[in-house]
Every structure is written in C-alpha cells, then in structure tokens.
Simulated scan of single mutants.
Amino acid sequence: MGGQESANYIVSPALDGGPAVIFVPGLGGRTKFVDQWNEPGRLPVIRRANWSEPMSVPSVDERGTALASLITESGATDVVLVGHSMGGLVCLEAARHLERRLRGTVIMCQYPPHRTPLSPLAELPDRALAEEIEAPPHIMDTAALPEYARLWRSEYHLLNRYLESDPRPMLHTPIIAVGAIDDASSWDTECLNDWNQYTTDGVSVQMVEGGHQMVEQLDPETLREWIGKVR
C-alpha cells in the first residue's frame, strides 16, 4: 500500500478558491484531450484531475473522498464535476462530501451503480484487454503492456468491489447523464434515467453519437451547454 497513502488528485489549472469545473477521467486516466476544450476565450475553463500516482489503485470511494478534500481545502465553490466512465463514479463519491460547494454533476458513459453489471474484463489476456479498452497504440506495442494490464485489472477488480457494495449516496444537485449510442456502458436511456435514484434534484439524459471514448471527440460547446444546465 506504500505509495497510496500520499497519492492524491492533481487538478490543473490549480484550484483558486473560485468557481470550478473539474473533469475526472476513467480507466487509464487520459486527459490530454481536455486541452482542446480550453481554447483561448472559452469559459468556463475546464480543469483536469489526474491521480498523482497512476500505478497505484485506491478504491473508487477513496478517490472520491480525496478529490472532495482537495476541493474543500482549496475553498472552491460553485463546483461542477464532470466524470467519464469510472470517473463518473468517482465524481458521485466526491459529490456526496461537497454539499453546498457543488452545483451539479455531468456523468458520461456510465450507468448508475445499481444498473452497472460486474465487469468480466479483468479476466482477459493482456492484449485482448488492451484492445477492449481501446488503449493507445504506443501502449499496445510496448514491452510495458503487462504492467499496464496489471493496473487495468486491479481497477476493474476495484470497480466490481464498489458495485457489489451497493452504494447509495444521495445528492441534492442536478445530474446530467450522457450516453453514447454505440457504447455498451451507456446506450440504454432507461438505465441512464435511473440516476434519479441518486439525487433529489432531477436527472437530464443526453444522447450523443459514438462509442465509449466519445468524450475525446466531444464538442466543447456541447459540454459547456451541459455545464450551464447544472449551474
């Protein structure tokens, strides 16, 4: 467990005590595409949250607690959390601790916990697992693939453990649940509507083209429209 005790999220640009929109990635932690959401003149700035020790794998609820602590300590208010895939569950766990600091949550390509089946991906061989999660070519073809696969398996085991714990946080701010029509994790609007069991303030379901990685091609103005709705 050594490195996990000091691991935390690093938010960039850094939180400054004012309003904040924070993107939390899913498995693999890819966030470079967030740069294209922040071209000059586009507001609000969308910050990205990266885990400080990528090869450590704390639980979903531990990550959520760590992110909430960082936000609270910064003094940030009027916070919108944006999560993709497992990052959406991290946002859910962070949101339960933020109370009045939180304005809303946008969750992309992730069914609510009670509608998410346990994942069989942790049992796949290294390359098959990399192909299934659409790992970048430079990872697929590196000698370090077995180490990456170990990390991914650990995260899927943690995800399954989280789902089996039957968590039921209840928020008091709106949730926008975004599905992609070719994504097995989010194509069913009935499942997405069940996010209403996690908030007293209503759920809006939005559907877009693409598969699970649609977030990497998402139109920045579409995302800002969703952020404006929860604010």
Rank of each mutant, 00 (worst) to 15 (best):
S119Q: 10
E190P: 07
P125A: 12
E190D: 10
Y162K: 04
D183G: 04
P117R: 06
E190M: 11
M108Q: 00
A184S: 15
I176W: 02
I176G: 08
L121V: 04
Q197R: 07
R168V: 02
V106P: 12
A130W: 03
S165W: 08
P117D: 08
E190T: 15
Y156M: 02
V178H: 09
T116A: 10
S154Y: 01
A149D: 09
R127H: 11
S165Q: 09
A130D: 01
E131F: 05
W195K: 08
P137R: 08
W152P: 07
L163V: 11
M140A: 01
T200S: 15
D126Y: 01
L171G: 07
D201P: 01
Y198N: 10
L192G: 07
D201I: 02
A122W: 03
E147A: 04
E123H: 14
V106E: 12
M170V: 12
I139G: 10
A135R: 13
A144M: 11
T105F: 05
L129M: 12
P174S: 06
D182M: 14
I181G: 11
D182A: 15
E132T: 13
T142I: 03
P174W: 06
A135H: 05
P117M: 07
M140N: 03
Y148T: 03
A122G: 13
A130E: 04
D166F: 10
R161N: 11
V203E: 12
D194Y: 10
R153V: 05
R150K: 05
A177W: 10
V106R: 14
P117K: 06
P174K: 08
L159R: 00
D166I: 04
D188S: 03
P117L: 11
R115V: 09
D183R: 00
A135N: 08
A177Y: 08
R150E: 01
T173G: 13
E147G: 03
D141V: 02
M140H: 00
A184W: 12
A184L: 15
P125S: 13
E134T: 00
A143R: 05
L159N: 00
I139C: 07
Q197H: 10
Y198T: 11
R150L: 02
L151V: 13
D183L: 01
N196M: 14
P112M: 13
E123W: 11
A144L: 10
A180C: 12
Y111D: 07
M170E: 06
C191E: 10
I181Y: 14
R153E: 08
E147N: 04
E155I: 02
P137A: 06
L121F: 04
N193F: 13
T199R: 00
R150T: 03
Y148V: 07
T105P: 04
V203A: 10
E155H: 09
R168C: 04
L159T: 01
L118W: 02
E164Y: 11
P125L: 12
A149I: 05
W152G: 03
R115E: 15
A177R: 07
T199H: 01
P167G: 03
I175R: 06
H172D: 15
D188Q: 02
I175Q: 10
P169S: 04
T105V: 15
L159C: 00
H157L: 13
M108N: 00
R168A: 09
L129N: 08
L145N: 08
A143I: 06
C109I: 04
